[in-house]
Amino acid sequence: MTGTRSRNERFYRHRLPVRIAHWLNVLCMFIILLSGLQIFNAHPALYWGHDSDFESPWLSIGAYRDSEGKLEGRAYLGDRHIVTTGFLGVSSNADGEQERRAFPSWLTIPSSRWLAMGRNWHFFFAWILVINAAIYLAWSTFSGHLRDLTPTRTEWRGFGRSIVDHLLLRHPVGDAARRYNILQKLAYLLVIFGLGGLIVITGLCMSPRMDTVMDGIMSLLGGRQSARSLHFIAAVGFVLFVCIHLFEVVVTGLWNNLRSMITGQFDYPVEDDSASKKVEKSHEHS
């Protein structure tokens, strides 16, 4: 970049409803995920179909005895397993004692084995999340925010280049830095409507009462145990999204991004020659 110096300009990037919804999402998703792991621990095996074929879960975590008789944690994917002692299957609890449990105490809410309380946290914050999402979607529709998230035809044409830019950690400058880019838009839409929709529907499909009116969609998904598996997979999808999201937050400027999600104000680089162009333009008119 010779000849042009860049400087920062500040603009109001995130409106208040977005910021409130964002931090409520953080709180809710964190609690729902960790209380979800508590619930998973009550029966740490996943199946496809309507019911549980206890002999052959497609995924399971458990405690076994190794050849010397010592406790060994294992995670199974079908018949294949990896030894996960200390993390999955067998881990230390708060008192330092080895315990048989699928996910370790530092990854569950509450930390001890307590299914009833895990369900209490899970359902309460699931409602907060759903209500938050409903308000956010209503606001987004009426305020035009949803349009900010809709990819334009030009952006679709830049899809390939955007992937390359992301992989090379090349970040937009100038006006482009003020908008969501195409991958961002797709990621948010996919998470909100894809993963979000899937996790709510599969959650409802696990309800025997709701199943009286949801049999069609439950069967389409493969049955109640399939719904439970898909609920877990959708949760893994959310975790992957959060990992990528946090990575991008860090590499595109942690404090700047954090500030913009707290006060709304975001600094973005502009090339200095835009100022000189303005001067030239005014000359033309004179």
Binding site: I31, I109, N120, A126
Partner: peptide
């Protein structure tokens, strides 16, 4: 997480969480 544990064992917080039971019931 230790805050969540403390809330789980408190007298006042679980009833708030359990208000979701009534909502689940009503919505179903």
């Amino acid at each position: 997480l230790s805050g969540c544990d403390r809330l789980s064992r408190s007298n006042w917080f679980p009833p708030i969480l359990k208000s979701a039971d009534r909502l689940n019931d009503a919505v179903q």
